[in-house]
Design a protein around this nucleic acid. Structure first.
Length: 300
DNA sequence: CTCAAGTCCTGTCAGC
DNA sequence: TGCTGACAGGACTTGA
């Protein structure tokens, strides 16, 4: 379930249930869910059992639960199809459940946190926390100036108040890559995936193949505004759900799929100009755009 | 056979 | 020569 709004819905759903809770036990049902934890299942379980969770934090599409002691966090990436589900402590296994945390919260009692993932691109890890180089909190929901080592190379996300807009604009204008590839580069700006890249480019009327260097400062700033706008709107509607692969911690779908203007609409009329939206192969996936109102400038 | 919300790795090439 | 970064393409996986 991937992009920033969907991961934020999960973080916000998890936070009240896990903050202050103790991890009593951990079931590793499929070791492939630990690809980000190279020390293996026994080490993973040993580092978690008996520890207390302090918060639920997020940067871009990475989620983490800082642990008492302040030096480590449980890191989660949902990949393409990962889910974090809050369940009764004795709930039956989810379809594709890979890991289960048995937690106990002072107010909510015993609960299960199930990590389920059909395609196994997602994974969990216990990771060291490092001091942030920019002296700002590690991410949304993090009050401390700490970030997991696996997240340190990820840029601050588009909705982070400490996101460096001037540096981003300068970096875009130095690149010769297609602007869509730049938006998907998590080391420059994080949280954007294929859906919201297409939506933001459509809103800003920029062709996805336009080179970064061909964009004016004004155009990049406008694009950034559209990125923030679409992420916030999607978040307000609970994220984008096409099928059961994206759900919140209670298993419910989001509503933003009804509001998409370009993504998934190849062959349909553009909601703005009536031209026919196109779907085109791009970076092993697809781009959706309107060839009429997203004109190619500085193309490749 | 094609397609899908992501990340990471590898090889190439340029520049210091 | 070796290091670093930019860049493009592909690997990984399951199921519809």
């Amino acid at each position: 379930m991937p992009e920033l709004p969907e991961v934020e819905v999960v973080r916000a759903g998890l936070a009240p249930a896990v903050t202050g809770a103790r991890i009593n036990a951990v079931d590793v049902l499929d070791e492939r869910a630990l690809t980000r934890h190279p020390l293996g299942a026994a080490d993973f379980v040993g580092r978690l059992e008996g520890r207390e969770v302090r918060a639920a934090a997020r940067r871009g599409k990475f989620l983490w639960l800082p642990l008492a002691g302040g030096d480590e966090a449980l890191v989660a990436h949902l990949g393409m199809s990962g889910q974090m589900l809050l369940r009764e402590s004795d709930a039956v296994r989810e379809r594709h459940e890979r890991i289960r945390l048995h937690i106990e919260h002072p107010q909510h009692g015993r609960l299960a946190v199930a990590f389920a993932d059909q395609r196994t691109f997602g994974s969990l890890a216990v990771d060291a926390l490092l001091t942030t180089p920019d002296a700002a909190p590690g991410g949304f929901g993090a009050d401390l100036l700490l970030v997991p080592s696996q997240v340190a190379h990820i840029a601050r996300d588009a909705l982070d108040p400490t996101f460096d807009e001037r540096a981003f604009i300068a970096a875009v204008r130095r690149r010769s890559s297609a602007i869509k590839r730049i938006l998907l580069d998590q080391t420059l700006i994080s949280g954007i995936g294929n859906i919201y890249a297409d939506e933001a480019l459509w809103a800003a009327r920029i062709h996805p193949e336009t080179h970064g260097a061909a964009l004016s400062v004004h155009a990049v700033r406008r694009l950034l505004g559209e990125v923030r706008h679409v992420l916030e709107k999607a978040l307000a509607e609970g994220g984008t759900s096409f099928d059961a692969q994206y759900v919140n911690v209670n298993g419910q779908a989001g509503y933003f799929a009804h509001s998409l203007n370009a993504y998934g609409r190849g062959g349909e009329p553009c909601p703005r100009c009536g031209g026919e939206l196109r779907r085109e192969a791009f970076m092993n996936r697809s781009s959706h755009y309107c060839p009429r109102c997203q004109r190619r400038r500085g193309a490749r």
